[in-house]
Amino acid sequence: MDNFFDAYVLPWIVDIALALAIFFIGRWVIKQVMKLVERLLRKAKVEQMLINFISSIVNVVLLLFVVVASLNQLGVDTTSLIALVGAAGLAIGLSLQDSLKNFAAGVMLIVFKPFREGNFVEAAGVTGIVEHIQIFNTVMRTGDNKEVIIPNGAIYSGVITNYSARDTRRVDMVFGIGYDDDLRKAKQVLQEIIEADERILKDPAPVIAVSELGDSSVNFVVRPWVNAADYWPVLWGITEAVKLRFDEEGISIPYPQMDVHLHKTEGSAD
């Protein structure tokens, strides 16, 4: 009986004790490693959402190693287990290709920051304010208060226009006058309207110039610089002011028109 205990039971008890020790000590080591990883990521000023995701992945991988080590101590053949986990990971990866693409794009968006929450951007054919940047998708709010959820893969693979990235923006406007109107007077009126608006920046200086002799009008480009937050108010305000002043000064804003000439030929009916 003693020989049976010494030969079989005692080694099992020792192996179980060592396996449990490996597991619990391993979990303690994992916690310390996770604290160190999170501390380093915060020191590197990584986004909290990305820190949480990286931490969860590292935790799962390290825990898997601890479990395998514990099973090895018990004498369990873990080769087939590792192969099974690898095959399952490959199958999951193939079935979640789009999700993995969106995840990778989400990580790139968070790390490289082409835009931030609160920015006004145009991406994947949607223009609006960025409300949330998540691992798999980005939530945007359009000007008419619609919530649009865009996969990160669609955003990162296309052109991103960030209207909030710079402090100032140029307002590009075009105003046409009739060929019979006074060109110098119209330019002076435009200059006075621009100079009277306190939201328009002095540097860079605004541009007012004749850009085109069109089919029905002489076109001016008016390009003042403003603070980014004043872009739309200035665009709408200047457009209204130009129409009102042109009406007061008798300057026409022509609409597209075509002159049709009829030629009477011999033998045609009267």
Rank of each mutant, 00 (worst) to 15 (best):
Arg116Tyr: 11
Gln191Leu: 04
Asn219Leu: 04
His261Leu: 05
Ser217Leu: 03
Met34Cys: 01
Glu122Asp: 07
Lys187Glu: 03
Asp167His: 14
Ser70Ile: 01
Trp12Glu: 12
Asp144Ile: 06
Thr138Lys: 07
Asn152Gln: 11
Ser56Met: 11
Glu38Asp: 09
Ser268Ala: 08
Thr142Trp: 10
Asp144Pro: 02
Ile92Asn: 04
Val171Ala: 13
Lys113Trp: 02
Glu212His: 06
Ile57His: 14
Pro256Arg: 15
Ser252Met: 09
Glu266Lys: 10
Ala21Trp: 07
Asp15Lys: 11
Glu248Ser: 15
Val111Lys: 04
Thr138Cys: 06
His132Phe: 14
Met173Thr: 05
Leu84Ile: 04
Ser55Trp: 03
Ala17Gln: 04
Val207Ile: 03
Gly176Thr: 06
Ala69Ile: 02
Arg245Asn: 10
His132Arg: 15
Glu192Arg: 11
Tyr8Gly: 02
Ile193Leu: 07
Val226Glu: 03
Arg170Cys: 02
Glu266Asp: 09
Asn119Trp: 13
Glu192Val: 01
Ala87Pro: 00
Leu96Gly: 04
Met49Asn: 14
Val9Cys: 07
Ala44Arg: 06
Lys113Tyr: 10
Ile110Phe: 09
Met140Ile: 04
Lys185Tyr: 07
Phe5Asp: 09
Glu198His: 03
Val242Trp: 00
Ile129Tyr: 15
Ala44Cys: 02
Ser55Glu: 14
Lys202Ala: 09
Ala123Ile: 06
Thr265Cys: 01
Ile238Asp: 07
Ile160Phe: 00
Leu50Lys: 10
Val107Met: 09
Ala104Gln: 12
Lys202Pro: 02
Asp215Ile: 06
Leu41Ser: 06
Ser216Met: 06
Ala269Glu: 14
Asn59Met: 08
Ala269Val: 08
Tyr163Asn: 13
Asn162Asp: 15
Gly158Thr: 12
Glu198Ala: 02
Val33Ala: 05
Leu36Met: 07
Val159Ser: 14
Asn227Tyr: 10
Thr168His: 11
Lys45Met: 13
Val222Leu: 07
Glu47Met: 12
Ala87Gln: 09
Ile82His: 01
Thr168Tyr: 10
Ala209Trp: 01
Val189Ser: 03
Arg141Tyr: 08
Thr239Phe: 02
Arg166Asp: 11
